[in-house]
Every structure is written in C-alpha cells, then in structure tokens.
C-alpha cells in the first residue's frame, strides 16, 4: 500500500529574498501530523513524464490551523523549483507525506549542534520554532551560512531567539562579503573548527544542505570522533 496523495491549494506566497519564496498551503483534507524536520513529496504537473516528484521540508511546525509552510530557492533551470516560482494563490498542489527521519530525539537530553547552508536551514528552523515554545533543556548551537546578507533566510528571527534564549548559540556566516554585514565571511567550516575542534563528541550533530556543503561538514564531525552514522545528515541533491 503506497501512501495516498492529497491535494490542497496555495493560500499565500511571500518572497523572502529575490531567490527564495515561502509558500503557505491551505489545510489539506487529511490533517498532516508531522515532526519538525520532516518533509512532503510534491507531485508537480511538469516535465517529460509528469508528475515530477520533488521533496520540500515543512519549514514551520504543525499549527492548529492545519496550514503547511514550505520555503524554497529557485534553482537555475530546475524544473520543480521554477514551477513552484510560477504558482499563485489558489493553485492546487498534490503531495504525499509527511516523510523523513531528520528529526530531534525525544526527549532531548544531549546538546545539539546544527550546521546548515542556505535553504538547508528549513528543517532546523522548524525544529527551533518548536523548541522556542519552552526553555531549552540543552545547549543548541547553529552554524548557518548564506550566499549573501539578503539570502540569509530567517536571520532576524534566529538572531532574536539567540538574544532571548541563553542556551541558543547562533553563528551566522556569509559565503561572500555583503554590504551592511559585519559578521564572519567564509565557509561554515571556518566557524565549526574554533567552536568545536577538540570538544569530545558529547553532542548530537545535525547537518542539512546540498552535498557539496554537507559532505565536508560530516567529515569534520567524524574527525571530532563521531561515527559516520552518528552524524545526522539531510541532503537536498
């Protein structure tokens, strides 16, 4: 028995940057009960042999309204993402899910170190929004890289959370210098080394983004003493 598809409508669209948009889906007929970090599989009416299947993370936790939020970047010549940059409020989207196991353990008893690049922040942002509902029981560190200041998606919200929650340690970086940015510039690994180099592997590392980013970061954690499988990784490509 395969998981059933269901169809809902796009309720709202919000541009977060020139290349990133948030899509809010109306509550689907069957409520989607999910854990922060999970994703849905969209069946899009494009390509040589439709449907084109593409995965998108639920970027905000379950809320009583039943709405679902996705957030994606436009991949150049990407069939799926370009289609999703053309959809408008009222259009229908068909999907399967929730799916995936890039989720936090319950209960959370170990410190967590998240590393994300660009839209790889989505599952982590969803987990952090969920964690914000109560004081953090452990220390949570986020190292997060974006291509430019305006493409550092959800930066303001993350910085505000770090300002009020002493156990949340937020380390953003930009891959290139950007006007108005006084923070670190360079790859996420440049921040991970001084932060964690030499620390015993007593925390949970979780990494999300494209493979070019995630592979060297996983290797970094393995060099810190983790087994390959102990590093939770979600890759997008």
């Amino acid at each position: 028995m395969r998981q059933p598809t269901q169809t809902t409508r796009v309720e709202a669209i919000r541009a977060l940057s020139p290349h990133v948009r948030e899509i809010v889906l109306a509550p689907p007929p069957e409520p989607v009960r999910f854990r922060p970090g999970q994703w849905i599989s969209l069946h899009l009416p494009v390509g040589e042999k439709p449907p084109l299947v593409r995965a998108y993370t639920l970027s905000a936790p379950e809320d009583p309204s039943g709405r679902l939020v996705l957030c994606l970047d436009r991949v150049s010549s990407g069939l799926g993402s370009e289609y999703l940059f053309r959809v408008r409020p009222g259009d229908e989207l068909t999907f399967v899910g929730p799916l995936g196991n890039f989720v936090l353990p319950e209960p959370l008893t170990q410190d967590v170190v998240f590393a994300a690049r660009y839209t790889g922040i989505m599952p982590i942002r969803c987990m952090l929004l969920d964690l914000q509902r109560r004081p953090l029981p452990v220390d949570v560190t986020l190292v997060y890289g974006g291509p430019s200041r305006e493409e550092l998606i959800y930066h303001e919200g993350l910085a505000a959370y770090a300002a009020r929650e002493p156990r949340f340690h937020y380390h953003p970086t930009l891959l290139r210098p950007s006007p108005g940015w006084c923070g670190p510039v360079g790859e996420e690994l440049h921040l991970l080394h001084p932060l964690l180099g030499g620390r015993p592997p007593d925390y949970l590392p979780m990494v999300c983004g494209i493979k070019e980013f995630a592979r060297p970061v996983r290797t970094f954690f393995q060099e810190q003493g983790f087994e390959r499988r102990q590093v939770k990784v979600e890759t997008y490509d």
């Binding site: 395969r2 599989s41 042999k49 084109l52 299947v53 593409r54 995965a55 799916l99 890759t235 997008y236």
Partner: peptide, 28 residues
C-alpha cells in the same frame, strides 16, 4: 529529470513504469 541519468529509476519512469521515488531521486 529524476534520479541519476541512466539509472534504473530513469529507465523505469522514462517508460511509464511506476517506481516510487518520494525524495525525487536524490538518495534521501
């Protein structure tokens, strides 16, 4: 456009054979 070019998934989908691929063919 899903899965590695020339993969079993590519061949299946290209010929209307329904092989599940919920992550879009990216090993996830």
């Amino acid at each position: 456009r899903s899965g590695q070019p020339g993969s079993i998934l590519d061949i299946a989908l290209g010929h209307g054979i329904d092989l599940e691929h919920t992550c879009g063919g990216v090993c996830a």
